[in-house]
Amino acid sequence: MLKTLFDQISKGPYLLGDKPYAVDLLWGMSLKWCRMFGLFDSNPAVDAYIERITSRPAFIRTEERDQVLADQQAALQSQES
């Protein structure tokens, strides 16, 4: 499956061509996590794809909001203990 995905990524800037779609956000985040956990070796085409996705302003805003929610959840849990 990864070979098929990586082959598609290497064909163009995004999975379905020149424009990003929701599938790119899904795979960009999934591949970022997989790479963080060492589930596949670094690959220049995939690394560039992950960078294209994760450097998008909407992606950055979403990660910032996720961090705020995670911080709030941690604060609530520490108050409960």
Rank of each mutant, 00 (worst) to 15 (best):
L2Q: 09
L2G: 13
K3E: 14
L5N: 00
F6N: 09
D7P: 07
D7Y: 12
Q8E: 15
Q8D: 11
I9D: 06
S10K: 13
K11R: 11
K11W: 06
P13G: 05
P13Q: 12
Y14F: 14
Y14W: 13
G17W: 12
D18N: 15
D18M: 15
K19M: 14
K19N: 11
P20G: 02
Y21V: 14
A22P: 02
A22R: 07
V23I: 15
V23H: 05
D24W: 00
D24H: 02
D24F: 01
L25H: 00
L26H: 10
L26T: 04
L26Y: 13
G28W: 00
G28H: 07
M29R: 05
M29N: 07
M29I: 01
S30P: 03
S30L: 15
L31N: 00
K32D: 04
W33E: 08
W33S: 09
C34S: 13
R35T: 06
R35P: 01
R35H: 13
M36F: 11
F37H: 15
F37Y: 14
G38D: 07
L39F: 14
F40R: 08
D41F: 08
S42R: 14
N43K: 11
N43E: 15
V46E: 01
V46D: 04
D47G: 09
A48H: 07
A48D: 09
A48I: 06
Y49D: 04
I50D: 00
I50R: 01
E51H: 13
R52P: 08
I53T: 01
I53A: 03
T54C: 14
S55L: 03
P57N: 05
P57D: 01
P57C: 03
P57K: 00
A58G: 06
A58E: 06
F59H: 07
F59P: 01
F59G: 02
I60D: 05
I60C: 03
R61P: 04
R61I: 10
T62Y: 12
E63S: 08
R65I: 01
Q67V: 02
L69I: 05
L69N: 10
A70V: 05
Q72G: 03
Q73A: 14
A74M: 09
L76N: 09
Q77K: 14
Q77S: 11
S78H: 06
Q79N: 06
Q79C: 10
Q79A: 14
E80R: 12
E80Q: 14
S81C: 12
S81A: 15
